[in-house]
Design a protein around this nucleic acid. Structure first.
Lengths: 142, 142
DNA sequence: ATGCAAATGAGAACCATTTGCAACTAGCTA
DNA sequence: TAGCTAGTTGCAAATGGTTCTCATTTGCAT
């Protein structure tokens, strides 16, 4: 909780510095995002945010998410056949494993893969700007 | 050309075997797909297919692409902030590098990355079903 | 406190893709 | 070869996540 509070205050600071006003609605959305352990989509965030501030509209959720994304505070993911899902961008870079049965998302990171990607791009005459790596998996049964 | 003809006949055979009728419209779309060197989207395919058979509608393009995808003849890709793009699924598996300036798509393959992905999934207790790896790059200037 | 640019809620607009429906047709059958 | 019938088609309308419009509200620098 203390941690979360600090993080929220920190995120609000980033916004203010970026000239983005911290409104009641945005505070609610930020709190939800900071506390989220999963990767909720816009309507799920809306549902949760309304519990803090019933006036938050879905439009504002989308607008806030876009603003936060531009400030680099939030990351948007478009997994296969699904609505966009969001997470705070405070953790170091990672990729995602998606459970195709439950939709659960697990984060992982492989420096080897990261490096190989850069090498491949270089070989083809390109600079790697960003990438998307998603593993669609089924829980192993044994 | 001879090659393409054979390939088209082969694809048509696959469809018929799958109980999918090869109509005039589908033949046109198949030809376009088989000849495409790039990764066109539905409306571009529509544009090209109309030159062979002016009656092809966009609905039919979408319906045919879905049918072809289900037959495993075509693969659909949803790259970032863009409409779905398609390619025939006859080439061996590969991933994609997207030029973020031109939208051009380059195919590549890395066995090392493929292997690492499977290892990661396994470590997390999952079986890898499919994956998505896209490198968004800018042409190197030097 | 005040003023004003930024932000909000509600609903309309967007737009790629899908679907309902009545007319057509591929391709098996007799 | 004609007929049959379930699969297909074109058109237009529907869908659904996301964005935009606009009148109203509000954060916050002065």
């Amino acid at each position: 909780m203390r941690q979360a509070k600090n993080r929220i205050a920190e995120l609000e600071g980033i916004l203010r510095e970026g000239g983005v006003r911290v409104t009641r609605q945005r505070a609610a959305i930020l709190k939800i995002l900071a506390e989220a352990e999963d990767h909720p989509d816009a309507s799920e965030l809306h549902r949760r945010a309304k519990e803090i501030d019933a006036t938050v509209s879905l439009s504002t959720v989308y607008r806030t998410l876009s603003a936060l994304e531009q400030q680099g505070v939030v990351q948007r993911h478009a997994f296969e056949n699904a609505t966009a899902r969001f997470e705070t961008a405070d953790a170091p870079h990672h990729d995602h494993l998606i459970d195709i049965e439950t939709g659960a998302v697990i984060e992982f990171r492989s420096d080897k893969i990261e490096q190989l990607q850069a090498e491949i791009a270089a070989e083809l005459g390109y600079d790697l700007v960003r990438h998307r790596l998603e593993l669609y998996c089924r829980k192993r049964k044994d």
